[in-house]
Design a protein around this nucleic acid. Structure first.
Lengths: 231, 231
DNA sequence: GTCTATAGACCGATAGAC
DNA sequence: GTCTATCGGTCTATAGAC
């Protein structure tokens, strides 16, 4: 376990001339978005405790104290990242539910399929996927846990009341989603070449949606995987 | 976010007389088990990075350097905790699969139900549940991630080859399991009184197995939920 | 709006005694 | 088998300048 050099997930290009970048002045709101985007990636990869505000700052191309200055505390920053992920998820679902229904033989199944596809699309963003999963395992933190519970229940209610899903459809939909989460989080596609069972399992789990996943996985977003400072 | 006093999840009773406990000398193997049990809880609640070797030590009733001495590094300790959780899971499943099958109308379904019940029983131990989930979100750590992938694939192969499950049964079984994980991790039963949707969702998700879960949840194992140092 | 400098707290690991 | 003491490193957050 030695000290690690940080690979910077730079965002603000600023065409480095070689020296230290004086960072151009941009509106606070815009900078906020940059920081939140960077934080989503860093928190996702290192976990809440494992991530440092300095890693977030480097990924956003600014100084560490500025990150803190803008969000008050690291905890606050994480909460905003989480809220953002939940919001994107809920908005995405709501849009699809509001679409005009096709009157086919299996209306509910069709809607579930479209929602499922949208979900997979969303969690291909590893920052979103892992921020959500981070929140799930923070159940006993009063504030993060409460947000996770509230978010999950909001999805449940949406499926029940707005989508009109019966209980079994809801269970299957949510269960499949949690399986997607896990298989993507552990990076099962990474070992397709080493173990044929990996691809087989992915194929069964994702069914039609596998090609979508594989396309995005290849392009890959992620930090390095330094042995230090995981979670 | 102020400094927090640690609630000690003491294990070695040692009937405190008020002064510092001189900790009785016990065989290394036994002490190992105590530390691993304590570490399972602490890592589960705080995450790999969030947990400190001192918290583990306090929970086990010994000194911090002794924890490090016995496992070399914190990373090593976590790996042993994870290996132990996986081992318990795999052993438990294998025992059930080896049981004589009842020749009913739905042999596969019966076996799946028994495995599911055993799984719920296992993850009622929040240490095991959260250690596993911690491993899932550590996919890009070379060593932890590899263990998570290998463990998941071993379960998959067991269901396919030893239990003889067809693909759809495997998917449903694993998906249900991941949903159990999530709902227990976020502590949904904690808000049964505040929101009827919580109990409804739990009922649909766990079906017959809900009463088992609720019994154990009430008894509750866990650290406190200090606002500091989460995940 | 952004930085440098740094205080203050914490943590993992080592050394060495009993 | 177990502890005390402590080093060296790291991290969040604050102060204050530009």
């Amino acid at each position: 376990m030695t000290t690690t050099s940080e690979p910077e997930t730079s965002a603000t290009g600023a065409a480095s001339t070689g020296a230290a970048q004086p960072t151009e002045r941009i509106p606070a709101a815009e900078r906020r978005e940059q920081i939140l985007a960077a934080a989503s990636v860093v928190f996702g990869e290192r976990g809440y405790s494992g991530a440092t505000t300095d890693q977030v700052a480097k990924a956003a191309g600014i100084s560490q104290p500025y990150v803190v200055r803008m969000f008050g505390t690291k905890e606050n920053l994480f909460l905003e990242v989480l809220a953002r992920a939940l919001e994107r998820l809920i908005t995405s679902f709501r849009l699809i539910i509001a679409e005009p229904r096709e009157h086919g033989p299996d209306e509910v199944g069709d809607l579930a399929a479209r929602l499922g596809a949208a979900y997979v699309d969303l969690i291909e963003d590893r920052g979103i996927l892992l921020s959500l999963m981070q929140a799930f395992i923070s159940g006993n933190n009063p504030v993060v846990g409460a947000k996770a519970r509230a978010g999950f229940l909001e999805i449940y209610r949406m499926l029940r009341d707005e989508a009109g899903f019966p209980p079994d459809t809801i269970r299957e939909f949510l269960a499949d989603g949690m399986l997607f989460n896990t298989l993507l989080a552990i990076r099962l596609p990474d070992i397709f070449d080493d173990d044929p069972a990996a691809e087989e399992l992915m194929r069964y789990a994702f069914r039609g949606k596998l090609d979508v996943v594989l396309g995005a996985t290849a392009a890959g977003n992620a930090l390095d995987s330094s042995p230090k400072d995981r979670t």
